[in-house]
Nucleic acid binder design. Structure first.
Lengths: 233, 233
DNA sequence: CAAAAAGTAAACTGTACGGTGTAGTGTTTC
DNA sequence: GAAACACTACACCGTACAGTTTACTTTTTG
């Protein structure tokens, strides 16, 4: 909007507090972080911190809301589609995965999960409304491809959740659990591509067997038995 | 071995402490649990607690090791196979899933993850040695089925991780994040079965298209492009 | 430039926690 | 039944933390 008028001191202080708090919460967790430490990292007096946020809980809430809003932007643009379906799904998933595996985001997921057991009312945003499949825009892109006849899907929720598991599940879980350090982008893409191929082995339509070395007699009845509908108990 | 001679008082106290500690750690997390509270719940004096365990950290370690040992037993018996491959994989996965979704186990996963960020040296057991695919015995059962010609798999690690994502990923993640309450066994089985079907759409062999309504011309070149080998970066 | 608003430093309150010390009571074992 | 051992109750130490108070300085604004 306006060409960034210089931020007032109050705004700068507030931002510094939020940044420092996010950093601490991500690295140490909510309980292990002291407000003294946050104020120190933010270069701010403790009183100022408590002028901006009424309590440590409120500060945590504000940090979480900020990240949640950032993640929300993921659900919107499933990007246009010149490529074949495999490449499109791979590109889509790699983009999302890069965000999900960002150490900053992983840290927030950990913090949210941790506090969700101690104090469920904090961080309720992460549980209300939308599923992660929706959040990531998976259902949207599947709908699009289905509309173009490139996918044959009986239950979009089921398919979306399977795609999530195939391409995100393993790496995301490893990341959250610190199972290994950073993985290379190349490895990530390989995992994603193979996941997409498995997904297409069930849900792809013959029309899209593009550029493959040779395999004419594939699939066809692939979607012949897909019943799952009722969810939950 | 010996037909349980009555446990000595010391043994009973120790067990009570471990039980109370596990309960508290699962529900409140490590930091939010006080040793006073553990002692109280265990019906034990605080001094006794510190006679059995030198520190709160050591107590946490002992609790975690106990659960880890319990989970280890999962990796052994992939159970015999009278059924067709789909039913066998479904039965196998449902059994594992039941353990993974046990609130007690979920709570421990959460606690481990939380402490893994604050103090990685605790709970190292959960990261050393084996992958979760190994832990759950997925690779074993895939090897067996491959040996019988019922699967055509290029990379066992990749396939195992995909099966994990398809049948465990979604529900496990939901459970860990408290996304919904308990899900019914019937719903679980449905998700698992559909996951297995997607898996078989890529890795199954024609020989095993048993009892299907009608779909003779399936797959064959399914495994023609499976390259993934190099891991990590 | 003057008044209002916001920030700072530092001491302080009350509480909670991890861990120890002590003196005495119950339990096991020979 | 007595010596060795484990359990109990309880006071205690030092530290840490969320949040407040006070007295003072800087920034913003009209």
């Amino acid at each position: 909007m306006e060409p960034d008028k210089p931020p007032t001191l109050t705004e700068r202080k507030r931002a510094a507090i939020l940044r420092a708090a996010a950093e601490s919460f991500r690295h140490e967790g909510f309980l292990a972080t002291s407000t003294d430490r946050i104020a120190e990292r933010a270069g701010v007096s403790k009183r100022t911190l408590y002028n901006h946020f009424p309590s440590k809980d409120a500060l945590f809430d504000a940090v979480i809301e900020g990240y949640w809003a950032r993640l929300q932007t993921l659900s919107q643009p499933p990007l246009p589609s010149p490529q074949g379906i495999e490449d499109r799904l791979v590109a889509f998933a790699c983009e999302r995965l890069q965000v999900l595996l960002d150490p900053e985001v992983l840290g927030i997921f950990r913090a949210v999960m941790t506090e969700s057991m101690r104090a469920p009312e904090l961080s309720r945003a992460w549980r209300r409304d939308s599923s992660y499949e929706q959040l990531l825009g998976i259902e949207t892109i599947l709908d699009e491809e289905s509309a173009h006849g490139r996918l044959l899907i009986a239950s979009r929720e089921l398919a979306a959740s399977q795609l999530w598991g195939l391409v995100f599940g393993g790496l995301f879980w490893s990341g959250v659990m610190h199972l290994h350090g950073q993985v290379s982008a190349a490895y990530r893409e390989q995992v994603v591509r193979e996941g997409v191929r498995t997904f297409l082995a069930r849900y792809g339509t013959p029309a899209e067997s593009v550029g493959e070395p040779a395999s004419p007699n594939r699939r066809k009845a692939a979607a012949s038995r897909q019943a799952a509908k009722g969810k939950r108990s």
